[in-house]
Design a protein around this nucleic acid. Structure first.
Lengths: 81, 81
DNA sequence: ATAGATTTGTTCGTATGTATA
DNA sequence: GTATACATACGAACAAATCTA
């Protein structure tokens, strides 16, 4: 997916899934190197105009895939691969 | 609103909004003069029985309205008007 | 000059309720 | 009826700035 795509609330794909693919594309593009901190949940909410729980759902998918990891009180980071 | 009102967790109005109106009423009553420090977050938590994030949300509303301002490491103060 | 306490700032974790498609 | 999405609320941990002893 285009890493610069925007969320389309009218699209058939769920918005959290759209965010998964956008974040995956941005990581592959190199927006954040391994072990680097990505946007905070609050920043994701701001940047993509979604509810916090929706952004968390997208991040959760990438965590389960081993692409991201979180550190409570610190932030969300790109995993080494 | 009554500046001496208490938080009602059963009321339809969100509790953070109730705190907004209580603080606004207390400021209008003159509990704290302009440039004076109000209760700290910890004291608001103690006084109103709310979670810290809930009190911060209420304070945030009044900051956005220009009623309050914060100084990191110092406290929260009543803005001049 | 240092150490500790206080205070606001930031962040993720968890749960519940409501509305909508 | 289910999955999605949003809003509210509380919990926990860490960081940075400030003040005091």
């Amino acid at each position: 997916m285009n890493p610069d795509a925007e969320i389309d609330h009218e699209a058939p794909m769920p918005v959290y899934q759209q965010l998964v693919e956008i974040l995956r594309a941005r990581i592959e593009r190199g927006d954040w190197a391994p072990n680097r901190q990505i946007l905070s949940e609050a920043q994701l909410v701001q940047a993509y105009g979604l509810a916090r729980e929706t952004t968390r759902k997208a991040v959760r998918v990438l965590i389960d895939e081993g692409v991201l990891f979180t550190v409570p009180g610190r932030g969300t980071f790109v995993a080494e691969r």
